[in-house]
């Protein structure tokens, strides 16, 4: 096995179609530690790489429920226990009035969890990542499409993987330094 200190091997493509076809070939060849880098989301890649499931909806649901409960309890504690006020003889526990703040805090907690959860699941912010060492990688946020087979993949071999990517109509194949 030839596994020196590189992050992986990266191929560059000039169209989303070429990238999707190459990804499909790479994945069916048995590589699993594969990632594609594109300037916009491509639905087909999620199909090939089986990315449709993620934990974000669960995180957001739990955070939303926590927000709603804490909003309700905050009001209950203040209006019933800590600072009871008699407003026109209404009951201290006047739940219809509590609904609004409960709702707003549900949304607030849910949205904060969406944002923070997205960052956590993506591993962002990340000040350094090896893929940026690839020359021309800055075009991945413009009009080029990249496919990287990572060195941690059990099938990875510096020379054969390099050669395999070259057979996939790539514009250019390069090694990704750490």
């Amino acid at each position: 096995m030839n596994k020196p200190g590189i992050y992986g091997v990266m191929a560059e493509f000039d169209s989303p179609t070429a990238l999707v076809n190459a990804t499909r070939a790479v994945y069916s060849h048995g590589y699993k530690k594969v990632d594609a880098y594109t300037p916009f989301p491509i639905e087909e890649l999620s199909d090939i790489l089986h990315l449709h499931e993620n934990k974000l909806p669960l995180i957001v649901t739990l955070a939303g429920i926590a927000g709603g409960i804490s909003g309700y309890l905050l009001q209950y504690y203040i209006t019933v226990i800590y600072f009871p006020l008699n407003i026109g003889g209404r009951p201290l526990h006047s739940w219809p009035s509590y609904m609004i703040v409960t709702f707003e805090l549900t949304i607030l907690f849910g949205c904060l969890a969406t944002f923070l959860g997205m960052l956590a699941l993506c591993g962002l912010p990340m000040p350094y990542h090896p893929v940026f060492n690839v020359p021309r990688f800055e075009t991945a946020s413009r009009d080029r499409f990249f496919l990287c087979i990572e060195a941690t993949d059990p099938l990875f071999d510096r020379l054969t993987t390099y050669g395999f990517l070259q057979t996939l109509q790539a514009q250019e194949v390069s090694e990704v330094a750490h």
């Binding site: 990632d35 880098y37 594109t38 990315l51 990542h129 991945a140």
Partner: peptide
């Protein structure tokens, strides 16, 4: 970095 995992 526009990773497919991140996009999803």
């Amino acid at each position: 970095r526009g990773s497919a995992r991140h996009w999803s």
